[in-house]
Structure formats: C-alpha cells, structure tokens
Design a protein around this nucleic acid. Structure first.
Lengths: 126, 126
DNA sequence: ATATTTATACGAAACTCTTCGTAATTTCGT
DNA sequence: ACGAAATTACGAAGAGTTTCGTATAAATAT
C-alpha cells in the first residue's frame, strides 16, 4: 500500500521540538514537564517519541551519563520553512500572498516585526 | 486512550478540498481524476474519503440521481484560517511575523499581491 | 432487453501515530 | 551498602488514516 512519507514532523513531534527550540537542549524529564502543561502526557510517552525521533534523525542525543540530553537535528527555521512550503502547496494553491494575508489577519504583529516585513517587501521589489 | 481531536483536515482530506476549491462542486470521478495526477489513488479510496468527510461535516452532498455532487461545507478561507491559527501556535510560537517572513522568502509573490499586503500593513498601523 | 460500463455502499486490511505498562538499569539519600 | 527514586529500553495495544476488494445498484449502448 506504500503511503507517501511525511516530510514534516507530526503533532507530537512538533510539540517536542517546540520545547527544545524554546529552552535549548534538554532531558526527557524537562521536555515532558513542559509538554504536560499544555496536554498531560506520560513520561514514557515522551521518552518513546524522543527515541523514535532520534532514530528518524530529527533529534541528536548526547549520551551524557545517567541523563541523556537531546537537541533538534534541524534548525527551527529550516523546519518552519519545510512546513510553510508544504502548506503553500497543499492549502494555499501555491499563493504565498494568500498565506501572508491570513497570517497577518489572524494575529497581532509587533511594530518591529511589521518593520522587518516592510523591509523584506522593499527588497523583493527589485 | 482518547487522543485530542484534530481541528483541521488530514492530508488526503486536504487534497480533496483543494480540488473542490479549485473546480467547484464535483463528482467523485472528477475529484479522483484530479487527485490521481499528483498521486495515483484508486477511485474507491477517494469515494470512501468523500463519504467519511460528508459524515464528518466537511463536505455537503447533493444526491443528484446517479451522480452525487459534493462541495465543501466550510469555505476555503475559513479552513485556511484554521490551519494558519493552529500552525502559528504549534510551529511559530505565536509569532505571525515569523510566519510571514518565511512565507515571503519561500516563494515569489506577484506585484498585485505585494500591493495588497502593503495595504493591509498600512491599515494595521493605526 | 441484455451486456457492458459506471457508480455507490460496505467492510476490512495495511499502515501510522500515540499511549503506556513493565522490566532493567542507574543514581542518590541515608 | 541498601532501598527508594529516577531513567532508559522494549514491546504491545489503542486510535486514527489510508487503501482497496467485493458486492450491489443504476445507466448506457447496441
């Protein structure tokens, strides 16, 4: 039946990456404590995921004695790009403009970020 | 084990919605023909999905004699918004600005769209 | 009107994601 | 050094997604 491989992280994987992005390299315990705030999750569930993600190449494990330390194998920006590119195709019929409009109207953007966006727009018009 | 309900469509469901968004109400045959271009899919697979999506309330079915006609139950924009909002939280730590930057640098945007984006930015700075 | 083609309904299998229990191992407090 | 507590490894099951085969019904062509 050969399904197509996903080229982006699943929900739970994202939740784990989110923690690691925010707090830097961390142990399973630390990650689980964070995740559990949003949605209660058993320790071994998180452990299992982080093991699998390491096998998949999504995480890198530092086998420190006793406590293993994990960190993302791929940068936050690169992962975000993967997801945006995929979504552009699957959800926005390839129109980055539409996606931008939706993002802007979905949530307040800080003045600094608005400025950065304008600068990028300027640079693009050449 | 009670998993959390997804509040957005799955991959395949999106593929079907994408076709219906692009071509308007359509039969299973029409949808399947389109989908098969990107990734070969059996007719009954698409049929089954469209039946399930109808049960879920994602599609509306017009039981025309012989050929059933399907259309999305939720507008393209609303579905896109759902996905963007979810992604902002899960992938971009709530920063719409980051998402916008990624979208803009991921793909070329047409001049007209750039203009619309600028207008929206102007309106937001008040 | 009968055979062929096209459509729908249904059920189950294959695969993936998510969850956790249990056992084995290691550390820490006393 | 010994028991309690924390960590890791492993396996399996529940839940959701995706796939398709087969049966049945409806339409079309000849």
């Amino acid at each position: 039946m050969a399904r197509e491989k996903k080229q982006y992280p699943t929900e739970k994987e994202l939740a784990i990456l989110k923690v690691l992005w925010a707090s830097g390299p961390a142990t399973v315990r630390q990650v689980n404590d964070e995740i559990a705030k949003e949605q209660k999750t058993g320790y071994t569930t998180t452990l299992k995921f982080m093991q699998i993600m390491t096998e998949k190449g999504l995480l890198i494990r530092d086998d420190a004695p006793f406590k293993h330390i994990y960190k993302p194998a791929i940068s936050e920006e690169k992962t975000q790009k993967q997801i945006v590119v995929n979504m552009l195709d699957k959800v926005f019929a390839g129109s980055a403009g539409k996606l931008v409009m939706q993002a802007l109207s979905a949530k307040q953007v800080s003045p600094e970020e608005l400025k950065k966006i304008r600068q990028l727009l300027d640079k693009m018009e050449e």
